[in-house]
């Protein structure tokens, strides 16, 4: 099966490979897997005080499509708010990378990883009721 040019490009030059400090309160980590093939994907996001993504990193052990899907995902979520990040759908990734039907699960994995990272971050934020209360107060 032939990979699309965009998949090959992301595979050969993956963007944002690496790790962020998972203990940083502003970092959310999502680790997901596809049990059918055994692929594992880690996606991390770092936000500023306004919950805007300032950095994103990934590490994927899997096929070219899984690597390309997560590489593209980290590009897309940078500079977005958490709400905007949650709107990214696997179908957007499928379209951008022209993934064939047998590789759609790779894009699902990337979407799951984004959601897991956001959920992890929100869990951390909820565990800090103090700052949360401060943020919730109207400005001025």
């Amino acid at each position: 099966m032939a990979y699309s040019d965009k998949v090959v490009d992301h595979f050969n030059n993956p963007r944002n490979v690496g790790s962020l400090d998972k203990n940083d309160p502003n970092v959310g980590t999502g680790i997901v897997g596809a049990p059918e093939c055994g692929d594992v994907m880690k996606l991390q996001i770092q936000v500023d005080d306004d919950n805007r993504v300032v950095d994103a990193k990934f590490k994927t052990f899997g096929c070219g499509s899984a690597i390309a899907s997560s590489s593209l995902a980290t590009e897309w979520i940078r500079d977005k708010t958490l709400d905007e990040v949650m709107e990214i759908k696997n179908t957007d990734i499928v379209r951008e990378l022209s993934l064939p039907p047998v590789k759609i699960h790779c894009s699902v994995l990337a979407e799951d990883a984004i959601k897991a990272a956001v959920a992890d971050l929100k869990r951390k934020q909820a565990a800090r009721p103090h700052e949360k209360a401060k943020e919730a107060q109207p400005a001025g």
């Binding site: 997901v32 897997g33 049990p35 594992v40 880690k42 799951d112």
Partner: peptide
């Protein structure tokens, strides 16, 4: 597996 993808708690992190 496609219907229920979950792995035992902590296993994915360990595998990673």
């Amino acid at each position: 597996p496609s219907e229920e993808k979950g792995a035992p708690g902590g296993m994915l992190a360990e595998v990673m």
